[in-house]
Design a protein around this nucleic acid. Sequence first.
DNA 1: ACGACCCAGATCCAAAGGGTATTGGACCGC
DNA 2: GCGGTCCAATACCCTTTGGATCTGGGTCGT
Lengths: 94, 94
Amino acid sequence: MSLTQIQYFVAVAEEENVTRAARRLHVSQPPLSRQLLKLEDELGAALFDRAAAGDKRMQLSPEGRTFLEHARRILAEVEAAEQSVKTSGGLRGT
Amino acid sequence: MSLTQIQYFVAVAEEENVTRAARRLHVSQPPLSRQLLKLEDELGAALFDRAAAGDKRMQLSPEGRTFLEHARRILAEVEAAEQSVKTSGGLRGT
DNA sequence: ACGACCCAGATCCAAAGGGTATTGGACCGC
DNA sequence: GCGGTCCAATACCCTTTGGATCTGGGTCGT
């Protein structure tokens, strides 16, 4: 699992559409699709409900919904970590 | 910034020694050293106090100490995310 | 002075990650 | 039923990243 995968996942979860999420992330659709599958594989669970025939939306599965909450927390924490260092360290140098 | 870098950083911070941390992580010392430098570069701050001439320990800088707390939270959250999915999804398969 | 220890740099190679092109399935208008 | 459209997944290639080995510079203990 990587931070990139987590970001990708969140974007797709929010857009409910891989292609749109890809645009938002400035990557192309296939890599995004692949990372999603890889993440699901690593976790051993389907994060999306693709089988929803007739509906094109990438809807979150129950596991997906659970994971989404954690994913957001992780990304928030990462950002906090960056900020904390940049704030404390950024004051001194030129 | 990647989860790997964060793990590496935590290990080195705990061991106060790159070589030992490398052994613990089952990687060799140079890659570990590089990732550390890269992380510091990305964050724009020194996480360790290498300048402490005469002292071989990789001691955390003030920024390093701050970052360490966040780093641990991130890793914990990642593990929680994995567990949550595996627990809920792991019941069905084989 | 020599050996032990430690971090960082250089170099090489394998693996990962992204891009384009394409396929396959589902829906829609005709 | 047949093309057109939309979407995700696959195939294939290529660049980039990340790890391993080897080397160098520096400090300490003997």
